[in-house]
Design a protein around this nucleic acid. Structure first.
Lengths: 228, 228
DNA sequence: ATTAAAATGTCATATTAATGTCATACGATC
DNA sequence: GATCGTATGACATTAATATGACATTTTAAT
């Protein structure tokens, strides 16, 4: 189930270069040389991500992005904006079209890949089935298993999701509300303090493999997974 | 549970030849003489593999492959492309439609068979006829027999298919819906909870050879076959 | 066709695990 | 040492899974 990535770019060589990178990264590239062309493709099937050049003939990339954002069907497609030089970046950002990310030409395949992956993960956190490893702690989303220094660690569903989230976003502090949003879901009504309890449960389990210090308290802010 | 292989080929003699090979190899061939015809068949039931001639009247094979890939329902059906001459192969590959394999005419039945088997093994191991062994538990798809530590285990058809699927995909969690799709079939309407009952029946049978812990419950997610 | 046996899906109930909350203890910061 | 934020243990409640029974369907045998 490869992700479809629509590239909208009028300069053919760049278009092909992008397509090549994308297919090598394991995604499925769709090519469009204009906004009109892109619209046709979108009507056939909603892509998972749109890579959009901000300068396009006729309708500019900015306008096109706005148009996508105003349509209910397309408004939630993540957009990554391509800008020619880094000094354009601020300008484009200032226009507030609501792109999910920006990338400046020339870009490295690695960077492009990383950004696509990040956007996909943000959109659907469980879409990535990659094995997560940090400091001897391993979480396997496929088998739904966690091991610490090769010792099997058993935990409840909430602790699993919580750890999954932290391991996907290490070295970053999250407030209790953010964690509730990301791990429990945004429409749910639960006390902030409940997060503390699940953190403790998680830490208790991680104690079995001396990983309890991975989950750190940031007084006044929230929690963080960190190896430091 | 034979694999359904959809052949899309406008030249009737070749179509029949392919169908013959395929049914002799123990699969179930479905015939389509055009992309339109193929679509109808696909709408009735998702085939396990599509053998697709890259040159078709009207919509070409390439376009058809793209279309299949852009639709969520069909995007994960493995496609094996048929090309007339080997010099066309690179051309077709360059078009990046995401075929899973390629085969050039004329092809030997042996080669065709091997490629089908390889693709199946990758995408749907439970449709191959390989003998499966895990931890003293053996399932033989050919003789339709299961033994646990050399003791013959008798079970109903559903339990057999369920075990077959799990043994083909070990160390992987499947939700009840996924299991219904994979083991019962996707067009069937059955309660999720029914899966629980069959899991229990299977576990009961596996108790005879102390294999009942192979099938594990993953709370909130589903079930898993695992030796850990 | 008729009957018996086997298999299947569903439901009601039992069992078990997980969850959220609270009261209280603890610890840092000023 | 007062205050604020966090940690912890206990507990009631909720949710998920396991189980046994049963009606119905399918299959095989006669």
């Amino acid at each position: 189930m490869k992700a479809n990535i629509l590239i909208v770019e009028d300069e053919e060589p760049i278009l092909e270069l992008l397509a090549l990178n994308i297919s090598q990264a394991g995604y499925n590239p769709l090519r469009a040389i204009s906004a009109e062309h892109a619209e046709k493709l979108i009507n056939q099937a909603i892509p998972d991500i749109i890579l959009l050049d901000w300068m396009l003939p006729g309708m500019t990339g900015i306008d096109f992005a706005r148009k996508l954002r105003s349509n209910a069907l397309t408004k939630s497609i993540p957009i990554i904006m391509l800008t020619a030089r880094s000094d354009e970046l601020d300008k484009v950002k200032g226009l507030e079209v609501g792109a999910d990310d920006y990338i400046t030409k020339p870009f490295s395949p690695r960077e492009l890949n990383a950004r696509i992956k990040a956007v996909l993960r943000r959109k659907a956190p469980e879409l990535t089935e990659d094995l997560l490893k940090i400091n001897g702690l391993e979480l396997n989303p496929v088998s739904h298993r966690v091991t610490g220094n090769n010792k099997l660690l058993e935990m409840g569903p909430t602790e699993f999701r919580l750890l999954h989230f932290f391991m996907s976003n290490p070295e970053r502090v999250y407030s209790r509300s953010q964690l509730l949003d990301k791990v429990w879901g945004s429409q749910i009504f639960i006390e902030d303090r409940t997060v503390d309890v699940h953190i403790r449960r998680l830490r208790n389990i991680l104690t079995q493999s001396q990983h309890e210090n991975l989950i750190q308290t940031v007084r006044g802010s929230g929690y963080r997974l960190s190896i430091k």
